[in-house]
Simulated assay, not measured.
Amino acid sequence: MTFDWDYFWASLLTPNSSFLNGLALTVTISVVAMALALILGLVIALMGRSRFLPLRIIASIYIWIIRGTPLLVQLVILYTGFAAANLFRFEDFSIGFLVKGAVQAAIIGLMLNESAYISEIVRGGLESIEKGQTEAALSLGMTSLSAMRWIIVPQAIRVMVPPLGNSFNGLMKSTSVLSIIGVAEMFQIGGTMASSTFKAFEIYIVVALYYLLLTTIWTVIQTSIENWLNTKAGLPKAESIWKRLFGMRSKRDQIAPKNPLAELEGAQA
């Protein structure tokens, strides 16, 4: 078996309409699922911080179940299992364009899966802000909600952006498992092309390169967002895109950081 370079370059540089549709569907599902997961993750995080025990229990059980089971299993149960048990069935509907049931299940499945992780990111971000700031805001007459809105959340966002960006990167790659429920995203289209042309190696490398392109574009966007937030907070910029992608560091960056504990012990001596 030989590698067909002509077919590889043609597929990479001039993909057919089916592949481009799969690429567009991959991006659409990723963006919509992430947006919904952010909302649900915030709700779950706030439930976990609630004063009411039942809400905290519900949030903990939700996170435990979702994080403890594979995404693939969750998708199959959501799309096939519920229908087989006559509990719920995803039906196609139109909102100016056709939204297939499998796509609906894919978005909801990714949303549920990602929200459990996002809730922990949000919780960690909120808890990274000193409690004294909330107490100070309350002492000035602000309500708990306004203190959260104007004092805590703006500071926590800067802490949460890096892990949230990494979560979105992971979510985009996770769309490759959606083929199990029949979603015609990029990976499934690539598999169909490989089956019809018997050029699996060439096609799957093309698919991998397009996933790499998507995650690289998002890394650039994420780095820009982090730098903007750091600038607004008066902090140094985050790592450059070259450092983040290729690990390129200057000699200054490679100098071993000083040990503050050792400096403190030296000063005390």
Rank of each mutant, 00 (worst) to 15 (best):
L145A: 12
L145Q: 12
L145I: 15
S146L: 14
A147I: 03
A147F: 02
A147H: 02
A147R: 02
M148F: 10
M148G: 08
M148T: 03
R149L: 06
R149H: 08
W150Y: 14
V153D: 04
V153K: 09
V153L: 09
P154L: 00
P154C: 04
Q155C: 07
Q155F: 04
A156T: 01
A156H: 03
I157N: 08
I157D: 05
I157G: 01
R158A: 07
R158K: 10
R158C: 04
R158Y: 12
R158G: 04
V159E: 11
V159G: 05
V159Q: 13
V161Y: 09
P162A: 02
P162I: 01
P163D: 03
P163K: 03
L164C: 00
L164M: 03
G165V: 01
S167D: 01
F168D: 04
N169V: 15
N169W: 14
N169M: 13
N169I: 15
G170F: 13
L171S: 05
L171V: 07
L171N: 07
M172Q: 09
M172E: 07
K173V: 00
S176G: 08
S176K: 08
S179V: 02
S179I: 05
S179P: 10
I180L: 13
I180C: 11
I181C: 04
I181N: 05
I181W: 12
I181G: 00
V183C: 06
M186Q: 13
M186S: 13
M186R: 13
M186K: 10
Q188S: 15
Q188D: 14
Q188P: 13
I189Y: 14
I189W: 14
I189P: 12
I189N: 11
G190D: 07
T192N: 15
M193T: 09
M193E: 08
M193L: 13
A194F: 12
A194G: 05
